[in-house]
Design a protein around this nucleic acid. Structure first.
Lengths: 158, 158
DNA sequence: CTAAATGCAAAATTTTTGCAGTCCC
DNA sequence: GGGACTGCAAAAATTTTGCATTTAG
């Protein structure tokens, strides 16, 4: 399970390597891009374009929603961020590029990251190698988180 | 890897247990529901509502797209079908309810099913048990399928 | 017969696009 | 200065909803 907070120091470092990647990819470092990336990088909840736009609205009232969409698409195309696989109608994003997996609560829909290095190390079954060139494998675990379990228990007692 | 074809016998059996489930859930067995389910059950490509609607249009010209949406939502709520986790803008569905995993081609976006029973058997890491009540874990493998690899090779040579 | 399901049309939600003006390099 | 980027407005794509009619049980 990852921490819910991210130190400013770590974020700082992540911003620097982001800027470097942008230069390498010939992407201009606009105020909008920097702020959208920072907001996503410090989030732990895999926000949608709309959520990011809302969060940034206070500090950047003129930022438009279509810029958020366009920016996220650009970042994703350059592999600076990832789209998260969901069953949701809105697309969700994450700046975490290290290998990791997801836990999704079927009640509150919250998405958490987790590590499973022993799984990462195993190779896929033989017949899958015949399917093509494998690039990545990731797990999604579904269940009900503690918070939602507690709420359900409480409701039963009422 | 699953077969690309499904025998009429197997489909027949699946239809029967679907009808039984509908009766158990007090869902009326309408012509539309039966045909939408049959079309999804015989598909191997995890179609969207729109795709199913197109496929059924020839045999059922009056079937409306909103009925397809409504029907799929109803089926999903009753756990008769599943929504597939994707990164796509359209929602994709499958009638396969047995434990299985997905292979997704990053080029043609085709989604294939596969089995990995030794993975299914292992329990999740200790710290995840503390997160809440786990119901299911599934894998998505990303890569480029043989067909798309071949096409890329061909293009390089041109 | 009656409640549930469907089809139609209209609306809501989510995402994309064309274009004129702005800003990074 | 020039091409890339942004904001605005409008459109496209995807999904949902209200209501009159039809249908399964």
């Amino acid at each position: 399970m990852t921490d819910a907070t991210k130190s400013t120091h770590v974020l700082q470092h992540q911003m620097e390597s982001f800027e470097e990647s942008c230069r390498a990819a010939d992407l201009k470092l606009t105020h909008q891009r920097l702020e959208i990336y920072r907001e996503l990088a410090k989030a732990t909840d895999h926000p949608s374009a709309e959520t990011l736009h809302k969060r940034l609205h206070q500090s950047m009232p003129t930022l438009s929603l279509d810029t958020v969409y366009r920016t996220l698409t650009t970042f994703e195309q350059h592999h600076l961020i990832k789209k998260v696989e969901t069953v949701d109608s809105q697309a969700h994003y994450e700046a975490q590029m290290q290998q990791h997996h997801h836990l999704i609560c079927d009640t509150c829909k919250e998405i958490m990251d987790f590590q499973w290095s022993s799984f990462d190390a195993v190779s896929v079954p033989e017949d899958i190698l015949q399917w093509g060139a494998i690039k990545n494998k990731s797990i999604t675990i579904y269940g009900t988180c503690r918070k939602c379990q507690a709420l359900k228990e409480k409701k039963k007692l009422e």
